[in-house]
Design a protein around this nucleic acid. Structure first.
Length: 728
RNA sequence: GGACGCUUAGCUCAGUGGUAGAGCGACUCGUUUACACCGAGUAGGCCGGAAGUCCGAUCCUUCCAGCGUCCACCA
């Protein structure tokens, strides 16, 4: 027995050491062509890592995602494929800016306007860099076999160039336009805010039912009577027999001493059973009404300003709440108010300032989803090069043709449902951190270009792009696009992407759109959506809930191998995983078990047997049983990984190593090793089983398997060994 | 409001149209020269509720309940 091997396995030291060795040997770097002359002839397996946001540190959900993909990648690598797995991080414009602004508000009581654009962006960038550093360390410690030579950040120079190029080409194709849209406006913060920054409060409010005037035939209901001075129509359902006869009629009215012009229109979106079944349309201050106005070509006067004050008639300058009282008492005086009901309503409130959100129209940039353009080149089945298509058709065809395979049926359903209801994509954001829109103005002139146009007086659009605009380019902006690079030719479309289901619409569909437009390709051939990790109570891990678990803490306690294995065996692919620390602990014990199997074998086998290529034979019933079990295990684990049943695969290999190899065969070997007729063959079987086990386990527990592999005397890395095949 | 998912042993989860499985935990016994981060055992579940299809359902269908997610938010 060699006394140099400690009884207990210490993952932390080993994992650092192995990581260093992998780094130095550059075995995960796909651009080192000289290492293996056969490499370029091999089948390619390429993936991008869904880039984590630089909004802080990674949580256990990222650890799960990284592990899943690394298992698949390591398996494919061992199957002899040429692997490219690209790491990166995302700037996550809104999320990051909001995070930093919040900190600054808290610590310095300053808002973005106090700091100014330049200073705020500087601060955010500083924060992003810090957070990027932490994140990268975390990803590395998880053992993700990424090609770090290809690391990309959403705001780095190359990606910036790709984003501007993409914008310009889409602009020139007529797919990007500028138009008004209703946004969430925070009157206290004096800024637009995104839907994620809104909290909904269930409040009781009054629902007023009234007529605009005595001559008007239809009563309407509203919780906001003051906005009715901005009405331009009353919408009714086309099938509503009560109101059919009025459709198309127009009225000039005096409402609360303010003249308004009302047209009666028919619109499917109106609920017959709500209120009076007639909707007063206030186009400028309601999302739904804006769309109705769109469909019926109605004027959209703005009657509330950025300070939540009225802008018309004698109400001018009054707060909306004051104006409401004025209007209600006027209605009462005129005898127009038919009834008042108490109803529950979701009120939108700004998360940060607590102000009630006003909806206001603002100029925004859009991607036209339905406009046809000529696609110069297309590999997508069903879309011919040179034909007329829309982005919507690209998104639909890419999946319905099977060029992108969304492997779980339920997610495919969600995808199509989303495409069916898709509207134009608003890509401008009124924040400062992110890719600034590459549009310049000079008087009435508008210019779209990658650089500031020549000449004096050009001013860049103040808005930045929706973060998903740059994320949509990710599969090819990371491969050198817009250059016609060799990488792009070799590795695009990528083989697989494995995101959480939350970002199917946000990200996956945008990548299909972008890749289709710019390359005439799909971004990936297969989408395998995974579940998310939850805490013991089934809640999501999130920064705002503060229930995050630092994977590094788990790694230090149990080892990255144990964390990976614990997460993998937690639940089936696509289902959510409840994080269970005990499971991780159990896997640490498993690592220790494997370590001691190794110690036993080293202590009981001749040194030359450890590296012998001689095939063992089955001499005893125990021999026969273990070799058969091994073969079954190889078959099952391989099949399970192919089917993305990583939970089953990990449990099968666990079962074999612990309960077949250790509990049964090693016990049997204790007598067989004493029998000179059996000793050598028994040693061969032990070593053979151990080595095959190491290979099968390697995708799940890369560190300990690689470490033991080295201690057995191998000169090559286990990570690039050949995957075992079963005999049957 | 719409869509989808989940509900199986104390806990975390697999699974199959034909008398229920794993890991952890619990309990009993054992071993202390591979491993106490150990071994051999034991106990535990009318597989969320109701109805239907079937010779037979935990698995298929319908309804209901609880939980969760995404989308749209109702004047």
């Amino acid at each position: 027995m060699e006394t140099t091997l400690p009884k207990n396995y210490d993952p932390v030291l080993v994992e650092d050491e192995i990581n260093k060795k992998w780094d130095e040997a550059k075995i995960f770097v796909s651009s080192v062509e000289g290492v293996d002359p056969e490499l370029n002839k091999r089948e390619v397996f390429s993936m991008v890592l869904p880039p984590p946001n630089v909004t802080g540190v990674l949580h256990i959900g990222h650890a799960y995602e990284d592990s899943l993909q690394d298992v698949l990648i390591r398996y494919q690598r061992m199957c002899g494929k040429k692997i490219i797995w690209i790491p990166g991080t995302d700037s996550a414009a809104i999320a990051t800016q909001a995070r930093v602004e919040k900190d600054i508000q808290k610590e310095e009581h300053k808002n973005r306007y106090d700091l100014g654009r330049e200073e705020l962006v500087r601060r955010i960038t500083e924060f992003a860099l810090k957070s990027e550093k932490v994140i990268l360390t975390q990803v590395k410690r998880m053992g993700a076999s990424l090609d770090w030579s290809r690391y990309a950040y959403a705001l780095d120079e190359k990606r910036q160039f790709a984003v501007y190029t993409a914008f310009k080409r889409m602009y020139e194709a007529g797919l990007i336009y500028r138009g008004n849209r209703i946004v969430n406006w925070d009157p206290k913060g004096q800024t637009t805010i995104s839907d994620d920054e809104i909290i909904y409060e269930d409040r009781q409010t009054q629902l007023y039912t009234f007529k605009y005037s005595k001559d008007f035939p239809i009563a309407i209901s509203t919780t906001r009577p003051e906005t009715k001075v901005g009405d331009t129509a009353v919408a009714v359902h086309p099938d509503d027999i009560r109101y059919k006869k009025y459709i198309g009629q127009e009225f000039d009215l005096i409402f609360c001493d303010i003249p308004i012009h009302i047209k009666i229109v028919a619109d499917e979106s109106v609920e017959k059973d709500f209120g009076t079944g007639a909707l007063g349309v206030t186009p400028a201050h309601s999302q739904v009404d804006w769309e109705i106005a769109d469909r019926h070509n109605l004027p959209r006067p703005q009657i509330i300003n950025e300070y939540a004050k009225m802008t018309v008639g004698h109400l001018d300058g009054k707060k909306v709440s004051e104006a409401r009282e004025v209007v209600v008492s006027w209605l009462k005086d005129q005898g127009l108010l038919e009834k008042e009901d108490k109803i529950q309503q979701n009120v939108s409130i700004s998360e940060r300032t607590g102000a009630i959100i006003e909806l206001l129209p603002k100029l925004q940039w859009w991607v036209d989803i339905n406009k046809k353009f000529t696609i110069p080149y297309s590999e997508i089945p069903g879309i011919k090069s040179g034909s007329q298509v829309s982005l919507n058709e690209i998104m639909r065809e890419s999946v319905s043709s099977g060029a992108v395979k969304i492997s779980q049926e339920r997610f495919q359903k969600i995808y199509f449902h989303w495409i069916d209801n898709l509207k134009d994509w608003c890509i401008s954001r009124q924040i400062w951190f992110g890719h600034r829109i590459p549009i310049w103005y000079r008087g009435d002139e508008v210019c779209c270009d990658i650089k500031i146009p020549k000449g004096e007086g050009w001013v860049q659009d103040p808005d930045t792009l929706d973060t998903w605009f740059s994320s949509g380019l990710w599969t090819f902006s990371t491969l050198g696009w817009p250059e016609k690079s060799q990488d792009l030719k070799n590795f695009h479309p990528t083989s697989l992407i494995s995101p959480a289901y939350e970002i199917l619409q946000l990200w996956i569909s945008r990548m299909i759109l972008m890749s289709g437009f710019h390359l005439g390709q799909v971004p990936f051939r297969e989408v395998m959506i995974h579940g998310i990790v939850r805490d013991k109570n089934g809640r999501k891990f999130s920064k705002s809930l503060g229930n995050g678990i630092d994977p590094v803490e788990m790694i230090e306690k149990y080892g990255a191998d144990a964390l990976r294995m614990g997460l993998m065996s937690g639940a089936a692919f696509g289902n959510d995983v409840k994080f269970d620390e005990d499971q991780v602990k159990g896997m640490k014990h498993f690592a220790n078990k494997l370590w001691n199997i190794f110690r036993f074998i080293v202590a009981n086998c001749d040194k030359n047997i450890l590296q012998s290529v001689q095939q063992p034979v089955a001499l005893t019933p125990e021999d026969k049983l273990i070799l058969q079990d091994l073969d079954d295990t190889i078959k099952k684990v391989t099949g399970d990984i192919k089917n993305f049943s990583l939970n089953n695969a990990s449990q099968t290999i666990y079962q074999f190593i612990w309960h077949n190899l250790a509990d049964k065969y090693i016990e049997a070997s204790k007598t067989q090793l004493k029998d000179s007729a059996l000793a050598k063959n028994t040693q061969l079987i032990l070593v053979h089983c151990l080595k095959q086990s190491l290979k099968l386990l390697h995708p799940f527990m890369p560190f300990i398997t690689e470490y033991i592999w080295g201690l057995l005397g191998s000169k090559t890395f286990l990570a690039i060994e050949k995957w075992p095949t079963s005999k049957s």
